[in-house]
Design a protein around this nucleic acid. Structure first.
Lengths: 201, 201
DNA sequence: ACCTGAACACCGTTCAAGT
DNA sequence: ACCTGAACACCGTTCAAGT
């Protein structure tokens, strides 16, 4: 045994992350274990710790990939020719769609796992920033006259809100009597927020 | 051993839930295990399974208590004499405060644990409904003329949104450059949403 | 140098056996 | 009837030892 050198460190990382994504997607995040990932790529657990600090580190890297995928998903679905309001609604719908289609991976993105209080690394925050960038772009034509800071702040508030609607729905915290659909809720939010924001400023 | 009958089933449940809450609060949700709870109340693991279906079931009951506590917390902090907008801002601030002061228990409330797709039991949804009721009450004077359904819908959208802001902040998903505080974000959300909602309807 | 696999200290859950 | 504690099938993580 030992000294196989079949794959470089980077190749092993790549294989591990691909296997981890497949396991989460097919079997749920509870089946994502060091042993299941190692087994899926034909290595032993020890090898995983040569390439990731620990399982939380692996999950963080998987989440970074999920964010990249989400960014592409959103970009592919928003028509940049549409009017700004329609673009924002489209982004919200696409965001919700992603969560519905890839629930397990999307949930993993927001689970309170690794270090509650510790801050996320810069390379991870950069990915989050890219997603927020899409919202800012769509929002800019509507609120640009209020300054760049207003765009950024409005984008955050709006997106955190859409996220809240999405997460409570996906996790069944809105299964109370007489509920609207997630799409309707997002539409109501965006319409009314923009109504207020563009008028008062 | 065996046949102690020191405590009734209900007493054991009570002790277990109190111990679980203390463990989560002091050591974090990762330390919440069947063995740690059993140890804390002076029983063995087996006993816990006489009283809860499994650990997810224990967590669900703990979460129900957390919701009760949150409901009391919100009720205690909102001045019912204040004007409706101020009441809503107060509720948002109190909600965020609870999350900040009891982060681990609050996180447990929204982690995607037990059965992703399975619905929550009615007695749990009833507790969620009570919390939403506080928002509805504060919102009623502002949008009552638009009908009861509008109140319910607006309350949900508004609260899911405040929740989104809170959760992304607590879980460090908004640690990007130039961020406002959670309170400012919630204020911006509520002000603008209400502005739109009360004018257009 | 690279990888193994056994070991350590844990998990959730069950259930025969004790009183 | 009530509770135990040992057992089962797992965990994350480490690290001496093999090639």
């Amino acid at each position: 045994m030992a000294r196989r050198s079949d794959h470089s460190r980077d190749e092993i990382r790549e294989m591990a992350l691909a296997a981890a994504a497949a396991i989460v997607e097919k079997e749920g995040s509870r089946k994502l274990t060091a042993r299941s990932v190692a087994g899926a790529i034909g290595y032993t657990v020890g090898t995983l710790y040569l390439v990731f600090r620990n399982l939380d580190d692996l999950v963080l890297h998987l989440n970074a990939r999920t964010l990249d995928e989400l960014h592409q998903w959103l970009q592919a679905r928003v028509e940049s020719s549409a009017e700004p309001r329609r673009q924002l609604q489209g982004l919200a719908e696409a965001y919700i769609d992603y969560a519905v289609c890839h629930t397990a991976r999307w949930n993993l993105l927001f689970d309170s796992v690794a270090g509650d209080d510790s801050e996320l690394p810069d390379w991870y925050l950069a990915r989050l920033g890219k997603v927020f960038g899409l919202i800012e772009s769509a929002l800019t034509p509507l609120v640009a006259q209020q300054g760049q800071e207003a765009v950024v702040q409005a984008a955050r508030v709006l997106w955190a809100s859409v996220h809240g609607i999405c997460t409570l729905k996906i996790r069944h915290r809105l299964d109370l009597a007489g509920g609207q659909s997630t799409g309707e809720m997002a539409a109501m939010l965006i319409d009314n927020f923009l109504e207020g924001f563009t008028k008062t400023g």
